[in-house]
Design a protein around this nucleic acid. Structure first.
Lengths: 233, 233
DNA sequence: GAGTGGTCTAGACCACTCA
DNA sequence: GAGTGGTCTAGACCACTCC
C-alpha cells in the first residue's frame, strides 16, 4: 500500500528503470508527467525531475516540453573512453614507464597538418617526435605538431624529460578536441621506432585540440600491432 | 559592477570554467564553498550546487564532503562514442545502406570465442557472417557468434533481410558490454568480402555482450582501410 | 565536533511546443 | 492557449569526513 515511505531520487530512478526494463512502460510509451510521478512516489517534483533527467541523459527516455517524456525507441548506447596521460596509462597497467625524445625542431608544417587545424598553408610550427615505452618495450610512437602562437611558452620547453602530452595537459588546457582512430600500415620511421616490420598493421589515434578557436596541436599516436583500445559501455 | 543580474546555473558554470581556464583558480586550488558562491552570484545554493556538480561530473573539479571542492590536478578527459546500428550509421552519412547475408550456420565455436565469453569449450553456437554496404561499397564485414541459450528466438530468425546487429538490438537487450578496437591484417575471407588485398591494415571493432551473467554474442566487425572512428570529446 | 557537500521540499515562474 | 518540462528559491536536515 505505502511503498518506500521515503523516496530518494535514486529509488525513483531505479523504479522507473525497472518499469522500462520489464516493459511495464514499453519502448515509445508516454510515461506520466512529473507532477503525477511526484504524487505517486510521495516526493517533490524537483526530486522526480532529477531522476528523470538522469534517465534522459543516459538516453533511456526522451523528453520534450509539452509532448512529455517517452521511453526511447532506440536507446543510444554510448561507449566511453578515458583519455589519460600516456605515462599514467602505462603505470596503471603496473608497468614501468619510460620516455624518449627522438626529435624536436621548428619547421613548415605539412599541408595535411595545417588544413586539419584550420591554419594557413606553410605555417611554421614546432614538431616533436618521441617514444613512450612500457617495461622497456615500445608502447606508443608520438608525432606531434604544436602551434607556438597559441602556446608561446612552448618555445622554452625542450621536452627532454617530460613528454609534450604531459606538458600540454599542464600548460595548455584545450576547450575543444577531435579524436579519431584508424588502422594504417607502419611507415619506415614508425616501424623503426616501434621495432616492427614496415607495413605492419598499426592502430593510429589522432587528436587535434583547440583553445577556443585557436589551434593548439595535432598529434598522431601509433601503437604497435596487437594493441587494444578498450572502452567502457 | 553587477554582472548578470540574473544568474542561471549555466552562467555560474561558465564563469567557474573561465576562472579555472584562466588560472584564477589554479589546478589543485580549493574553491569557495557553495554558500559563498551562492552569495557571490546572488543565487540559491541549489543553483550553485547544480553548476558545481556538472563540473564535477565533467572531471574539472573534485568534491569531498568537509574537505571542499578542488580544481582537478589531472582533469580526466573522456571521449564518447555513440554506438548506433550499422544501418543508421551509414544512413546518417547520407549514403544508401545495403545488407548482405553471407552465411548462417550452427557449429562448435572456436575456443577463442567461448573463452572470451566465459562459455565452456566446444559450445555449440550460431555463427552469422554478413556484409554491410554503403552506397554499394563494402562498409563493414561482420563475423558474429550468438549464444542461442540466452536468446532462444534467434533459432527462428534467418537473418536474410535484417542484420543480426539490428535484430539483437530489438530482441535481446544487453546489460553489460565489452568493446574494443585494434588494428589487424585482413584475413583471406575478410579481404575478399571487403574487396581489398589480403594482409591489408584493417580496423577491427570487437564487442561482447551479456544479459546479466549470460553471454549473448561476440562480434568482430572489420572495416576497410581508411575507415575512421570519430569520437566526441 | 564541526564544516562541507548531498539531497529534499513546496512553491513559483518561465520557455518551449503542440494543437 | 494550454500543458509539460526547465529552472530557480529559501529553508531544512542529513551524511560523510576531517580534525
Amino acid at each position: 500500500m505505502n511503498p518506500p515511505a521515503r523516496s530518494s531520487f535514486r529509488d525513483i530512478k531505479a523504479e522507473m528503470m525497472r518499469r522500462i526494463a520489464t516493459r511495464v512502460w514499453p519502448p515509445g510509451a508516454l510515461i506520466p508527467g512529473e507532477e503525477a510521478l511526484a504524487q505517486e512516489f510521495g516526493a517533490a517534483r524537483a526530486t522526480v525531475n532529477k531522476a528523470v533527467q538522469e534517465l534522459a541523459r543516459a538516453g533511456v527516455v526522451e523528453r520534450k516540453r509539452k509532448a512529455g517524456t517517452r521511453v526511447a525507441l532506440h536507446p543510444v548506447r554510448e561507449a566511453r573512453l578515458a583519455i589519460p596521460i600516456v605515462r599514467r596509462e602505462v603505470e596503471a597497467k603496473g608497468a614501468a614507464y619510460r620516455y624518449l625524445l627522438l626529435e624536436r625542431r621548428g619547421g613548415f608544417a605539412p599541408e595535411a597538418v595545417t588544413e586539419r587545424l584550420g591554419l594557413p598553408r606553410g605555417k611554421r610550427m614546432l614538431q616533436v617526435r618521441c617514444l613512450h615505452l612500457s617495461d622497456g618495450a615500445p608502447y606508443q610512437f608520438e608525432d606531434r605538431w604544436i602551434n607556438a602562437d597559441t602556446v608561446p611558452t612552448v618555445r622554452n620547453e625542450g621536452f627532454r624529460d617530460v613528454g609534450p602530452n604531459e606538458w600540454l595537459v599542464e600548460n595548455a588546457p584545450f576547450s575543444r578536441a577531435e579524436y579519431s582512430f584508424f588502422a594504417d600500415r607502419a611507415s619506415a620511421d614508425e616501424a623503426k621506432a616501434l621495432d616492427v616490420n614496415e607495413g605492419e598493421a598499426v592502430l593510429v589515434a589522432e587528436r587535434a585540440t583547440w583553445l577556443l578557436d585557436r589551434p593548439i596541436t595535432l598529434v598522431r599516436m601509433v601503437h604497435p600491432p596487437g594493441h587494444r583500445v578498450v572502452m567502457e559501455v
